[in-house]
Amino acid sequence: MKLIPSPRHIPMLATAVVLVGAFSLGSALYPNFASWGVIRNLLVDNAFLGIAAIGATFVIISGGIDLSVGSVMAFTSILIASLIEQHGVHPIPASGLALILGAAFGLGQGALIQAFRLPPFLITLAGMFLARGLAFAIHPQSLGIRDPFIATTINESLTFSLPLGPRGIQIPLTVDLFIAAAIVAWLVLTGMRFGRAVHAIGDDEHAANLMGLPVARTRIAVYGISGFMSAFAGVVFALYQQSGDPASCKGMELDAIAAVVIGGTLLRGGVGSVIGTVMGVMVFGLIQTMIAFQGDLSSWWTRIVVGVLVLTFLVLQRGVEWVGRRRN
């Protein structure tokens, strides 16, 4: 094994350093910070963001961007809340339908981007508006989900207990779903032809085309996956909140993109990893947690710190690219 990391791994290593550093800082500053409970809450509170960020990882590695994430999540949450509470649909088919709609929505965006060579940010910005409007069209206000299947079966029976800490910690299903999604996405991106093609078109689309890769199919599928993951995140959000809300998740796409960038994925495309994204989400969550522990700082500090971190990572990426060019 080489001891000097390849330049493409430097941003991810930086993420790991930031993650460990933030956790150590938190532990040093605040009593009770270094506890299983804090780690559990980190996972529980950020599971839906994590799932959305995994979808965004696909899009960003392919060299694109998806701004419709938050709206699709809101749409999904209110859709399943309405289906369950107002139309008496069982939660499982309701979630299934939401996932299919999310994937279809993403595929549609991808098809428009690919077929008409339109800028992804514009199409997905329009998608963001469309999904938000449709969410309000389903139901104009927040809607609680009281269905026993969700409240009892999913959120209680399927929660399992880990013998960690003095009283053990409860891991709800949403965290399992997040971890499962991360593992599947990691397998697809690192070990399947499709995943490698996603990297290739993000790195050099022209070359990928001449190398005979299915560029059009791959790009459309990437947006389909992002739509699906947004809907999935919306379902998890609804489970977490036990409600659907058309006004929720505003700006979630920015949080997801920020987590992906902090996770070491190049916004230019071509290089990135799901592991990095998961770490990025954890960093994001840690910042929120630390600000909460601090007590006298308001929550908007999160956005500023995240903005600074994103900038730092973008500059780091530029620097790595520059060093790489100099070396040749």
């Binding site: 428009l112 339109l118 329009a126």
Partner: peptide
Amino acid sequence: DIAPAPKALVVLVVCLLHSP
């Protein structure tokens, strides 16, 4: 709250019309 949806459709149509 719903108004963004029709607006988005207008954006899409205009973009398509402008697309070479």
